[in-house]
């Protein structure tokens, strides 16, 4: 899932300082699962904003509306009827959701309430770890299911580097060396041949916005 973390309260408060009527739009998918921007977090943030603004003698009228998925047009529709009542929108979705919201209501200022952090896994309640940088050409088959782009501090395709330190990465004793783990896993599986050849330079064209169209589908003429 996509993992996000709520922005520091003062930063959010500062973005909204000129607005008196705001709708906080939560998202019920990834950011709800990682406890950053679901219905509950919308309520908490709104209560905090309400209180803080009252103390400042600058009250804000803030409501909440959590959609199933902010990155899906189908679910945004429900907002159409209410958006006009507000001066600005606050979004607790990931960066994609915030943009989709801003795109749908181009006349409304839209502010992000979370910092979108990474694609990761749930290690325990409230504890998430990054696992994928969505590089667009997955090499996990060659690397024993351990991502060199994400888990190696230098994103090396032909590691480990000279700094590998008895299983730890050179940056920190508590950070495992991805390439040490890759070696160990492949060795245990008898598949070291996977990393014997030099991997050629990566195609980083993923730095332009990417599009995926699944087989059997096509891009609609007009969105």
């Amino acid at each position: 899932m996509i993992v996000a973390k709520r922005k520091p309260f003062d930063e959010i408060k500062d973005m909204l300082k000129g607005y008196k009527k705001v709708l906080n739009v939560g998202c019920g998918t990834c950011v709800a699962v990682c406890l950053a921007g679901g219905e509950k977090e919308v309520d908490v943030l709104n209560a905090e904003l309400d209180m803080a603004r009252r103390l400042e003698d600058n009250p804000i009228e803030i409501s909440g509306f959590t959609v199933e998925r902010q990155c899906d047009r189908e679910y945004l529709e429900a907002l159409d009827a209410v958006v006009d009542e507000y001066e600005a929108l606050l979004s607790m979705a990931c960066g994609a959701g915030v943009q989709f919201l801003a795109e749908r209501y181009p006349k409304k200022p839209v502010f992000p309430a979370v910092n979108t952090s990474f694609i990761g896994v749930n290690q325990d309640v409230g504890w998430y770890e990054e696992r994928c940088r969505s590089c667009s050409s997955c090499v996990l088959g060659m690397t024993g299911g351990i991502c060199p782009v994400t888990m190696c501090a230098k994103g090396l395709y032909n590691g480990p580097c000279g700094g590998t330190n008895n299983g730890s990465c050179e940056i920190n004793k508590d950070q495992p060396c991805a390439w040490y783990m890759i070696y160990e896993r492949l060795a245990a599986q008898g598949r070291l041949d996977c990393i014997m050849d030099v991997v050629p330079p990566q195609d980083w064209r993923n730095q332009t916005p990417r599009t995926v169209i699944q087989p059997g589908y096509k891009k609609p003429e007009a969105a």
């Binding site: 230098k154 994103g155 395709y157 032909n158 030099v198 050629p200 330079p201 980083w204």
Partner: peptide, 14 residues
Amino acid sequence: MGVFDIDSMQLISM
């Protein structure tokens, strides 16, 4: 930002 567009192995071959 660490660039690491290519790694040392790929630099050699380049």
